[in-house]
Write a protein that binds this DNA or RNA. Sequence first.
DNA 1: CGAGAGATTGACTGCGGTCAAAAAGCGTGG
DNA 2: CCACGCTTTTTGACCGCAGTCAATCTCTCG
Lengths: 217, 217
Amino acid sequence: MSASFAIATPRPRLELLSRAPGPAYAEQKLQFAADEEIYAEGGTAHHLYRVVSGLVRICGFGAEGRRYIDRFYRPGEVFGLAAGAEHEFSAEAVTACVVVPWRRRVLEAEALRDGETGRMLLATASEAMARAQAHARLLARASAPQKMAHFLLELTPPGARELELAMARQDIADYLGMTIETVSRTLCLLEREAVIAMPVARKIMLVSRAALEALAG
Amino acid sequence: MSASFAIATPRPRLELLSRAPGPAYAEQKLQFAADEEIYAEGGTAHHLYRVVSGLVRICGFGAEGRRYIDRFYRPGEVFGLAAGAEHEFSAEAVTACVVVPWRRRVLEAEALRDGETGRMLLATASEAMARAQAHARLLARASAPQKMAHFLLELTPPGARELELAMARQDIADYLGMTIETVSRTLCLLEREAVIAMPVARKIMLVSRAALEALAG
DNA sequence: CGAGAGATTGACTGCGGTCAAAAAGCGTGG
DNA sequence: CCACGCTTTTTGACCGCAGTCAATCTCTCG
């Protein structure tokens, strides 16, 4: 949508990366503007990525234009792992962000020799599996308020009392399998019940974490 | 999609299990009767299992008695992988079944030395991740007929025209995030529209696979 | 300060859930 | 083999949550 950003932001140059041999692969950083695509659904899964800064969404697009967001990745997390040769989902920058790519083939070759690399890959895959399972369970069984409570708790570090939402209502809706209207209504409901407060749309204060946790079950 | 990970299946090294301390698990087969528990939600994840025969369901139980089924495992598939120390879900026999257990610690220790074992574990985890993601996407966005179409196609090998359902309506409902009533209604709807035929409740004939695929999207 | 995207609110609809009852299997024992 | 009883599945009537369509409001940014 924002074509204006494309001028200001240097295009990510993956081809540089593929020529980078040896350990140098890990030092390359790629920048993306908000809403820019990192990789596409159906594209060959050449790389894994670690988020350095910003927020990334993993998403797929349905026939009738409906979008589904599988997960958000925050700084420090690793995304891009695929079961087959191709990505089942796209990756996009939610906000401007910086990521470090690794070549999949290099990692996998390394894993065959070095147990620690394999261990890291397995841990990444297992965590992604567990997350996806928990997400599916939520989508299958939870009501709108329950989904929202889960979502807010997922984003709030333990102890924190407030929360900046980096993503739009539409992102939240597509992540929770609802519509923007229901997202909005549910947030307002939680505010009316004094579970949260919203000084502005993108800022959430957890008035009662206990109530949220009770809701989430 | 299920058969694509041949890496996980061919001759997983049983001999390393005979070197395991304690009871020799190598050739050990475990039998379970229908509805028997294989392992429990919250229990320590000591083993992985390969299904030899029968059908296994991975499921969790909600506060209000609602059950959620994450996935079914059929002969040849490997289940029981956990991200943390404990299982997030229970495993139960849907029908009478036979499984072969491996010790997790032995496998993981082996993976540190032997790249092939690590590769197998990674393939298993990646496939489970992709499946869970696809499941979540379905639950988030699909209507009841779409879910049912997906489910039937998932269970039907390419080319097959008929299908024995090993699981009850309740299992299908808990897998697709619906109720038994809606499962029943949806199947009857598909039958009325001549997409499938049901001579008896547990036997499905795919009258028009094309129509099913169109529905599934 | 104005324009446009993003968010909220309202009215209405419809899909799937709930409650209830009937029908169809299915195994067991007389 | 049939009768019986229990479980599973189907069917029906009704309801409510979340989706849809549409209008309004509120930020943000230029």
